[in-house]
Design a binder for these strands. Structure first.
Length: 310
RNA sequence: GGAGGGGUACCCAAGCGGCCAAAGGGGGCAGACUGUAAAUCUGUUGGCAGACGCCUUCGCUGGUUCGAAUCCAGCCCUCUCCA
């Protein structure tokens, strides 16, 4: 099986930095598992590795889309797998770095996604129906075709309700059946997670937001808007971008923007904690403001050396 | 000094005799997640208990009443206007 190194953890936990350090020891190439770093011109808000850093170590799946281009887990899955093959065929070690747990799951396991592509017209129709007749009506459509999803999905969870119906229409099978497929990894993966105490991470997040403002987050968003990328784009819904959009539209002041951005980032980190908590196979290494980077590196090195030999 | 308004749970804010541990929102906490996932959705939020339930709350003190966040009196804060 192809060996794949994974570095994950909540936002602001120091994943990119660790990857960069590892690159000095191992012949790795980074594949970003980050749903926002794929977009060009969004650098400060997504906290991308700098251009210089990316020159030292090859980075894949960063800056590959314009902010108004479509992007999805499925495309991530395909392209990341291609990248993995490419990297390991050149006898280098693929290193997945990112905090988008869904992406990592879709990548690592036998996780079929190609059987029911999204159907925008259908979604549009269903959304209109929900508006006209209520979300419950749409939810009810699931009752017979996919009782398990009907049970498990809240009527308000329109996106997923519609997707479940869409999936059934495309495949004639309930989407819930996919959950029951045993999860089997298709790579020899070494998963390292950076574990932080909640409070310390939150402090780190607040500092990072301040830095982002100093580094010119506002200008970055202004430029994006100048290029014609509007607030309704999924990319512009990213944390940091939507808040600054509100500010530029005069809805909130700058201090308010910072506070809201800090809060939204904290909440995001919490959602990541929740996700990772039930993800199996991650080796969590304690990290925090008092942990030295070299100590962390040593720990990681021991793990990786062991795994590489096995 | 005079006239009027207001003090409700972490915050804002409804309630104005019993159905009130108290609507709604914010924030907090927790959870879900198989096609834009930094998105989206859900639950919970005085204390104790697994549960029937028990205990402490609506500025403070006292009163009316079978019963008060809701009525009365005094006091303390606070806001607007007039002087």
């Amino acid at each position: 099986m192809t060996k794949v190194l994974i570095v994950t953890g909540p936002t602001a936990s120091g994943k990119s930095r660790l990857a960069l350090d590892l690159a000095r020891i191992y012949p790795i190439e980074v594949i970003s598992a980050d749903s926002m770093q794929v977009y060009r011109y969004m650098d400060i808000g997504t906290d991308k590795a700098t251009l210089e850093e990316r020159k030292t170590v090859p980075h894949h799946l960063i800056d590959i889309k314009d902010p108004d281009e479509a992007w999805s887990v499925e495309e991530f899955q395909q392209r990341a797998r291609v990248a993995i093959n490419d990297i390991s065929s050149r006898n280098r070690l693929p290193c997945i770095v990112g905090g988008t747990g869904f992406y990592i799951r879709a990548l690592l396991y036998d996780f079929p996604l190609e059987d029911a592509p999204p159907n925008p017209e259908f979604r549009h129709r269903m959304k209109a129906l929900a508006k006209l007749k209520g979300r419950i009506t749409v939810h009810e459509m699931l009752r017979n075709i996919d009782p398990e999803s009907y049970q498990g999905l809240h009527p308000n969870d329109l996106k997923r309700v519609i997707r479940a119906i869409e999936y059934y229409q495309a495949t004639n099978r309930p989407i819930s059946a996919r959950k029951h497929q045993a999860r089997c990894s298709i790579y020899d993966a070494m998963m390292i997670g950076l574990e932080w105490k909640r409070q310390e991470l939150y402090e780190k997040i607040e500092n990072r937001v301040e830095e982002q403002f100093q580094r010119g987050l506002i200008n970055e968003v202004k430029n994006l808007m100048k290029m014609g990328y509007t607030r309704d784009l999924p990319s512009m819904q990213g944390i940091g971008y939507k808040e600054v959009c509100w500010m530029l539209e005069g809805l909130i002041t700058e201090p308010e923007t910072k506070e809201i951005l800090k809060r939204n980032t904290r909440r995001f980190a919490k959602r990541q904690f929740t996700w990772f908590a039930r993800e199996e196979g991650i080796i969590w290494l304690p990290f925090g403001k008092h942990t030295s980077q070299s100590k962390l590196l040593n720990q990681v090195q021991i793990l990786i050396d062991d795994w590489l030999l096995a």
